[in-house]
Simulated scan of single mutants.
Amino acid sequence: MLGKIRLENVRLYGFHGCLKEEEMIGSDYRVDLEVTADLSAASRSDRLGDTVDYVHLQSIIREEMAIRTKLIETVAARILDRVLEELPAVKSAEVAVSKINPPIGGDVQQVTVCLHKNRD
């Protein structure tokens, strides 16, 4: 039985961006991650070892968001790569990385990049 595990609205502070100010001052970010996996064993056993540990997922998000990059596309791709590399039960994953109040010269709440990747 395939199911989904979602981490929603993981809030972080980071220093991503192409502008020198973004590197120095930083800004708020939001990450949403959804993974698809076979959850049938976990639904019967009630054992953490039979599911995708969402603490591990959050650790991946936090570690990758801590690495400064110019583009949030790069951060999103690294998160997906690690999820599929480190968690063999995951069949596919989708991540959305949002920069809150981006410095783009207008009243914009956030800019979001969404990437999806399937296990090969």
Rank of each mutant, 00 (worst) to 15 (best):
I79Q: 04
Y29Q: 00
V55E: 15
K117V: 10
S40C: 08
S40P: 09
A76G: 11
L12F: 11
L48R: 08
R47E: 15
L2D: 03
I100D: 10
T36I: 07
D50M: 06
A66S: 13
K99L: 07
R47K: 05
I5G: 08
V75T: 13
P88I: 08
K20W: 06
D32E: 07
R82A: 01
D120T: 10
T51C: 06
D107Q: 03
P88S: 15
G106L: 05
C114W: 08
E64F: 03
K4Q: 15
M65K: 00
V10E: 14
G26S: 08
R11K: 13
D46P: 08
R82K: 15
V111M: 12
A66Y: 10
L48T: 13
V97M: 03
D107M: 09
A41E: 15
L19D: 04
L7H: 00
E86L: 08
E22L: 07
Y13F: 04
E23F: 03
N118C: 02
I5H: 02
T74L: 04
D46R: 02
D53L: 06
D28H: 08
E8K: 14
L57G: 05
G17L: 10
S98G: 02
Q110K: 08
L33P: 02
L71P: 00
D81S: 10
V113T: 01
L7W: 00
L12T: 13
P103M: 12
G3A: 13
G26W: 00
A42E: 06
D120F: 03
L115K: 14
S98V: 03
G14H: 09
R119F: 12
L39M: 12
K99A: 02
H116A: 13
V111K: 01
T74K: 01
A89L: 12
K70W: 10
E21C: 11
L84F: 07
R78N: 14
K91F: 02
L12S: 07
K99M: 07
E85G: 07
M24L: 13
F15N: 01
V90F: 01
I104P: 00
S40F: 05
L71R: 06
H56R: 15
D38H: 10
I72L: 07
D28M: 07
G17H: 10
R68S: 09
V75R: 00
T74I: 05
L57Q: 03
V55G: 15
P103S: 05
R47F: 03
V95E: 05
T74V: 09
L48C: 12
V113H: 03
E94Y: 08
T74E: 06
D107L: 13
